[in-house]
Amino acid sequence: MTNSTPVLQIKSLTKNFPTPDGHVEVLRGVDLMVERGDFVMITGPSGSGKSTILNLAAMLDTPTTGQVIFQGRDVSHLNDTELCEIRKKEIGMVFQKFCLLPHRSVIDNVLFRFRYLEKLPHDMNSHAYDILKEIGLENIRNRSARLLSAGEMQRTAIARAVVLRPGLLVADEPTGNLDGASTHTVMQCFQKLNKNGLTIIMVTHNQNLLEFCTKHKICKEGILV
């Protein structure tokens, strides 16, 4: 893979979901190209297929037809184990619900990113500390996650997502549960990481966040425009 290779290419992607009344076509030919260092934001109404695109980009799901090409490799037809291997090292994810382990400390939640690696890096603790420092959480690294504010929780989740320096960070409504001030802090975090070279795709309802992105796409009835 060269520096000019797009991080992610989505070509003519469709996705159907089975229901008792037959198949529902959620995505109807989506195309998207994400270059290295892009901060792509996808907006759109509920049920338009934004999260489905994100799941396919994060390799949590497989398309019905079309191609998902990640770092030059077609991953559309990989099996579950192969997708797990890519997610393990190359994809960072941030969720609306934070998904922290409440009984563990901030730093342990960040270190949880290494949980399914076969070989643990010897300097993972210093990596975790560095990223917490970059995000401004180093002083509360030993605090239990359940005692954090919503903004701190989301920043911890971001630290967990990026501690392994993934090729792509996907964020699904990361500010959906945050107030205005926390939203701003979290978005500044994303912007800082993006300026340091991290490629990000984010789905959001909040039109006010568009100022932080470098590319904007609107998802409408299963198509990106």
């Binding site: 797990c84 997610r87 393990k88 969720f95 998904c99 382990l101 990113r113 949980r115």
Partner: peptide
């Protein structure tokens, strides 16, 4: 279920 999703997102296989 959310924790299961998180683990899968971090690379856990169904066997894990």
């Amino acid at each position: 279920i959310t924790e299961i999703g998180l683990r899968r997102a971090l690379g856990a296989t169904p066997r894990d």
